[in-house]
């Protein structure tokens, strides 16, 4: 990753859970000198309008991202594997939410 100089505090990625039991979703990022202040900043930045019930924050440098240069090797092989989608059976009559 490029080393872009940031004169501010370390960056933290913020994940929010909209309701108990649902997956955490990436909401964005905040600055914070340590995890306590970063957590407050996450709350103040992303939880102002009743967005959810739980927050995770993760130091951005702890996130390992896939390499865009390897995208063809990583992702293209799954493009033509239609049989991996569970669509090759008939739905039982009356079952609406499988």
């Amino acid at each position: 990753m490029e080393n872009i100089q940031d004169s501010q505090w370390p960056i933290w990625e913020v994940f929010i859970q909209s309701q108990p039991g649902t997956p955490y979703k990436h909401a964005g990022s905040v600055h914070g000198p340590d995890k306590v202040i970063a957590m407050q900043n996450a709350r103040d930045t992303y939880f102002r309008r009743n967005e959810g019930t739980s927050i995770w924050i993760v130091p951005s440098e702890a996130i390992v991202a896939s390499n865009p240069d390897e995208a063809d090797m990583f992702f293209d092989p799954s493009n033509d594997k239609a049989y991996r989608h569970p669509t090759f059976y008939t739905m039982p009559e009356g079952a609406l939410n499988i």
Partner: peptide, 11 residues
Amino acid sequence: PILEEDLAITN
């Protein structure tokens, strides 16, 4: 002093 604090204080 920082954007996040701006939001915190105005909240």
